[in-house]
Amino acid sequence: MRGHLKRRNLEIDFVVNRHDERLYIQSAYALPSQEKMDQEQASLLHIKDGFQKVIVAGDRYISGYNENGILVESLYDFLLGKQKF
Results as ranks from 00 to 15, higher is better:
M1Y: 13
H4Q: 10
K6N: 14
R8D: 13
R8Q: 12
R8K: 13
N9F: 15
N9Y: 15
L10G: 05
L10T: 06
L10I: 05
E11G: 11
I12W: 12
D13T: 05
N17A: 06
H19Y: 14
D20Q: 14
D20F: 15
L23E: 07
Y24A: 00
I25C: 00
Q26L: 02
Q26V: 03
Q26P: 01
A28C: 08
A28G: 06
A30H: 09
L31K: 00
P32T: 01
P32I: 01
P32C: 05
M37K: 10
E40A: 06
Q41V: 11
Q41Y: 06
A42S: 13
A42N: 12
L44H: 07
H46S: 01
H46E: 06
I47N: 03
I47V: 09
D49N: 06
D49H: 01
D49S: 01
G50H: 14
G50Y: 12
Q52I: 10
V54C: 06
I55C: 05
I55N: 09
A57K: 02
A57D: 04
G58T: 06
G58I: 06
D59H: 09
R60F: 15
I62Q: 15
S63N: 14
S63K: 11
Y65T: 03
Y65H: 09
N66S: 11
N68M: 04
G69C: 11
I70G: 00
I70Y: 10
I70A: 02
L71W: 11
S74W: 08
L75H: 05
L75T: 03
